[in-house]
Each structure stands twice: as structure tokens, then as C-alpha cells.
Design a protein around this nucleic acid. Structure first.
Lengths: 343, 343
DNA sequence: CCCACAACCGTAAACGTTTACAGAGATCGT
DNA sequence: ACGATCTCTGTAAACGTTTACGGTTGTGGG
């Protein structure tokens, strides 16, 4: 762990100047003889270029940050899984921030862009506050936001279409003959919570179903809260025949409670989740879920960022990833699982 | 996104030297008046310290790398979830590498330590080759390995105890009265595959049960392969009454096949997984699983590394994390799930 | 034989910090 | 009142690169 060799060490040993060393290492035109000497010296010394010094001079760190709300959440992990290889292929390292969905932490991350330890940032905030927007406007490096951002915000933006997603799910339930379709949502002051709630209402009216406040239950985006919410809901509205859950964890909680209550899924109550995480395929009955394309969004975000890192100025772009309904046993019955058998 | 202010800008505006600016920003003793002027200038300019320049001078990047075999694997994610907050609390950023379990990539990561873009590395290789050991010996920054490393390797090392883990599971099945306990394993040339296979055999002999080759089925560590393996096994040994699966995904595959074959779990066949991933709690019936303490291992690794980053030289340490059997419905029956209800 | 030109190389400055050192005032004791 | 001491500040070097610029050498043409 002793101090490694620098281009100075190489220069001395090869009997040339540091400029020549640098030129050789960067493949700039140099006499063959010099190249040979430098390469030999570098090899013998086990030289590795110091990334920090290089970054200071070149003003490029070849690092990109990804700030996710919660390392535990499978939806963000799906993004991460796609972001990572795209960045890696382009020669960027990935710096991971977990903000625990705390706005102050997110602001911190944006602020820290000023430290210039990364060339760009992909961020997926749970809520977008005034402070976010201010920091975004002043950001010292390119930022791509995953999630919706107010109209007119000058920032690259990848969004899911949870409205259409909810529509797909509700239509599906309706087509199966369900008429008492409840919504189990997370907090309404989060971006996804608000969007999904509104979309549910919209979908109902489009289908000519009444919007019944009793059918809406607010909890949080986790399994225990999902259990509690669904328990309350069942107590209040025993005749519910379908549950539209705002994410997969809530839906798993719903399955727990329904099973304990002796309601069959999907015969008595059909259940749909959102995000199509790994858990949806693993649960029993397997969970019909709306994929909001976390993976695709991650990929799109990484590509937008790379484009901007390469390309320089450009009008901000908005990419919208279409949702996809993945039908499984929790709405279509166990026979559906048999089709999934493959690799 | 214009060029940000530097301490030079501040120095000019405040009418002091850059040395004073630096001193103020680092809280070194300075006259009140100077502090005031510098702070004022810094505020007005929205100054943020350049981390790259600082790192170059201080030879500290405040970054740590975590190289995991596979961003998709829940076991590594569990580690990540614990590593992240520990590092964050200590003021380190996390650089994430995914090596896709390719040895060459892992070597690359070790080599890139020479670039000095991180202060240390946590790595979890699937197999440890000769080349790994060489690079480890020559590593230019502290490294902590999660996973077993040959005796005598001079490196901090956090290991699981899968032998005891398998023992716990097999004992549990035996205590439940099972006598035809099969093992569904992954490839034997992987570190975990070999260890778990050997441990299974050992556990049987300790219990005085015969080791029957027919009861061992080799597949791979994924769900479809798990299905296939268990299907083969059932065809060959119809009277099997318990399955020890080498990881949770295999176990989920087992549940699929057993259900399709009309065997009740656990009444006819009890099933145990390993790793205790999120999937274990999500499945139905919920899956009894041996936790090898991924989370604890991550945490321990992060702490070892921090200690070394702070403390300097010290003999390498080996930490072994004890396994824990998490009993759920797939061995103990559905009544077990009711106890899990809480938050 | 001299000049123009190309090819290569070394010197030095720059990136933005931190910090050793020494100089300038202020303060104190005698 | 004078030197000793202390406090604060500025100058400059250093961290390890990249790169603009100018100098040296060699080639070829006139």
C-alpha cells in the first residue's frame, strides 16, 4: 500500500519528460522509441493513472450519481439494474445515494453536485417540492429526473404513465365482471399516490361506474400498512369484489388479509398490484400487476443523461414510458400460472 | 451551469488571500472579521468546495466501492442496504460496481483501485481464483472480502457459515419427523454449492440418517431450474417428505412443482430455502428459510472497512456471521404466518 | 550552404485545494 | 521603551495530471 508511481517516476526511469509520458499514455503521436521506453517503465512500475488528478485537470470525473428514494424498494432496484450497465458501457462509474425519501437529503444531493465529484445525476424523488425546483434550476451538472415534474421545468424527465396504468388495470377488472372495485392507495401527497388516486377515479367514470368514497382506502406503500388498510376496507365494505392496489407491497398485504378472512382470490376478490416487482411473480396466488416500466425508465434516464454528457446543450426532453398489464393468477385464476412455466 | 466560484473568487471578493479562505472554510483559527468577510463572500457566490481538488491534495476521496456479483441478486441487495447507511453516516459515498460474476471484471475492479478514486473496497466474489489472490496482495487500498477466502490470505474477511445453516435446517426437518430429506442444490463448482452440498451430507450422518444419492438433485440457483430439478426428483423418489433447497429461488420452484403435483406443503412435503430473501416472506405458503445474514455481513464488512480507513495498520480480521433459521409456513404450517402480522 | 518545414520533445502553467513557512502587527513583561 | 511572544495573514509549494508553447533536431529543396 506504499505510494504508487506517478508519471514523474516513469519519466525519470525512462529518461524523458513527464509531458512525453502523458502523451504516450494518451496515445498522442510520439516517436516509437519513446513509446517503447515509456511503456516499459510503466509496466515495470505497475503504473496506474491517478483518476483524481486527471479529473481535476480534465474537469470530468467519469462518475454519475443515482439518487434513489429507498435502496429497499424493488422498483428503484429495477431502475438501478438497467442504469448500471448502460453507464458502465459508456465508461462511467455509478455513485449511489439513498435519500430515504427525505426531501432534505434530496436537496443535499442536488447541492452536492457543486462539489463536482460527478458529471451528472439521475434522481427519482418521491415528492417534488419548491425547493427541489429551485435547486434543479441552479444545478451545476446535468440532471435527469425519473418521475413527473411540473410543466415547464427545464430538465430532462422520464415519466411513467400511471394514469394509463391504472386504466389498464381497472378496465381489466371491469372486463372480468367486477363492479365493486376498491382502491388501496399510499399517501396522497406523494407524486405516485396523487396520480394513481386521480387515475382510479377517472377510470371509473370512463367506465360509467360510480365513484364511491367508501371504496377508497389510504395507507402507505408498505406491506403491513397494506394489511391494515385492507382490513379496514373489508370491515367497511364487505361486498368489495376487486382491489386496485397502488403498489405490489400493498397488494401482498391485501393477499395476506383476504386469505386470513377466508376470501378466495380471485373468485371472491380479484387483486391487482402495481410496479410488477419480483414479488408479484413469487407470491401465491401470483399477482396480476401493472408494470410501470421501472426498468425501461431507468434505461431511458441513463441514455438521456449520457446523451447530454456527450452532446452538450439541447432542449430538455420528456420521455414517457408506457405501462403494461401483466396478468397473473390473482385476477385470472391459477390456470394462468401454468403458462409462465418456461425459463 | 457556468463555471462555479473557487476559493480564488472568494478571496478576491473578500479581499483576503486564498489561504485565509481555506482556513475559514475548514474552521481553523481566524480573526472574527476575516471569518465574516469570507463567509459573506462565499454565501453570496454560492460557493461549494470542489471535492476533486480537495481529494487530490488530501489523498482521500471519501468514496468507497462495493463490487457485487449481480445487482439483481437479493442477497447482495440485502448487503447493499446495510452497507449504504453505515458508509453514509461516516461521510463516505458509495460507488457501485456490478461484476456480473465475471472474474475478469472483479480483477479489473481490484486493479482500478490504483486509480485512487476510492479509499477502500468491499467485494463479494462468487469464486476466488489465484488471480484474485495476487491482486488482493498487491491492492493499493484496503479491501474487505465478503465470502470465504483461503486460510492465510492477508485480508479482512466476512464469512457466512452455510455449514451450520444447513445443519439448522436439516435438524429442524428431522425434528418435525421427516426422514426422507432431499437436497436440491446448485452447481457444485461454486463456493456456496460445494459448501451446502457437503454440509447436507454431514448433517445427515450426524443425525444418523443414511446418505442416499438419489435424494440429491443438482440444478442451478434459479427458479425455472429449481422447478425442473424438483420435477426430476419427484419422479425418481416419490416418497420424499422434505426438500432442503440451496436457495430461495430453487425453493420457490419447488413450491410451484409440488402445488402442480397436488402435494400439500408442508403436510406431504416440507420445504426449506436459503438466504431468507424478501421472496421467502412473500410466497405462499411462506417459506421457511435459513438466513445466512446477508444484511449482517454487509454491515460487518462496512464496519471493518471503516475501522481500517480510520485506524491504519492492523492484523487482518475474519468475522463469521452465524446463520439463523427463520421458520415459516412451508415447514410449520399456516398457523405460523399469523404471528408475523406486526409492523 | 542555407532556409523552410516537419517531427518530436521539454518547460511550465494550469486545474482547485491544503498547508508549511515566514512576515507583519499587536500585546505583554520587565 | 524594547525585545519576546503571540496571533493572524499572505506567499508559495504541493498533490498528479494535461496541454500550450517554443526549442531542438533532422530532412529536403533551392
Amino acid at each position: 500500500m506504499a505510494d504508487g508511481p506517478t508519471i514523474n517516476t516513469i519519466a525519470e526511469r525512462a529518461g524523458v519528460s513527464i509531458a512525453s509520458v502523458s502523451r504516450v499514455l494518451n496515445g498522442l503521436p510520439t516517436r516509437q522509441e519513446t513509446v517503447r521506453k515509456v511503456m516499459a517503465a510503466a509496466d515495470e512500475l505497475g503504473y496506474v493513472r491517478n483518476a483524481v488528478a486527471r479529473s481535476l485537470k480534465s474537469r470530468r470525473t467519469h462518475q454519475v450519481a443515482f439518487a434513489m428514494a429507498d435502496v429497499g424498494n424493488p422498483a428503484y432496484l429495477a431502475m438501478l439494474r438497467e442504469i448500471q450497465p448502460v453507464l458502465k458501457a459508456a465508461g462511467y462509474r455509478l455513485v449511489l445515494h439513498s435519500t430515504d425519501a427525505v426531501a432534505a437529503d434530496e436537496i443535499d444531493v442536488l447541492h452536492s453536485l457543486g462539489e463536482r465529484y460527478v458529471d451528472g445525476l439521475i434522481m427519482s424523488p418521491l415528492r417534488v417540492t419548491e425547493a427541489h425546483l429551485e435547486m434543479l434550476a441552479a444545478a451545476r451538472a446535468p440532471v435527469v429526473i425519473i418521475g413527473s415534474v411540473p410543466e415547464g421545468t427545464r430538465v430532462d424527465n422520464v415519466r411513467a404513465d400511471s394514469r394509463t396504468g391504472v386504466r389498464l388495470a381497472v378496465d381489466h377488472l371491469h372486463a372480468l365482471g367486477r363492479r365493486r372495485i376498491a382502491m388501496v392507495n399510499g399517501p396522497l401527497d406523494t407524486v405516485p399516490g396523487a396520480a394513481r388516486g386521480a387515475a382510479y377515479r377517472e377510470a371509473l367514470t370512463e367506465l360509467g361506474l360510480p365513484y364511491d368514497e367508501d371504496l377508497v382506502q389510504i395507507g402507505d406503500f408498505y406491506r403491513p400498512q397494506g394489511r391494515r388498510a385492507v382490513a379496514d376496507l373489508l370491515a367497511r365494505v364487505p361486498d368489495v369484489d376487486a382491489l386496485m392496489c397502488a403498489n405490489d407491497l400493498i397488494a401482498l398485504g391485501a393477499l395476506d388479509v383476504l386469505r386470513a378472512a377466508g376470501r378466495r382470490v380471485p373468485e371472491d376478490v380479484a387483486v391487482v398490484g402495481m410496479d410488477d416487482t419480483d414479488l408479484a411473480a413469487a407470491s401465491w396466488p401470483s399477482l396480476t400487476s401493472v408494470s410501470l416500466g421501472s426498468a425501461e425508465r431507468g434505461k431511458a434516464a441513463a441514455e438521456l443523461l449520457l446523451e447530454r454528457l456527450r452532446g452538450g446543450e439541447r432542449e430538455p426532453r420528456v420521455v414517457t414510458v408506457p405501462p403494461r398489464l401483466v396478468v397473473r393468477a390473482s385476477t385470472a385464476g391459477p390456470e394462468y400460472d401454468r403458462k409462465e412455466g418456461g425459463e
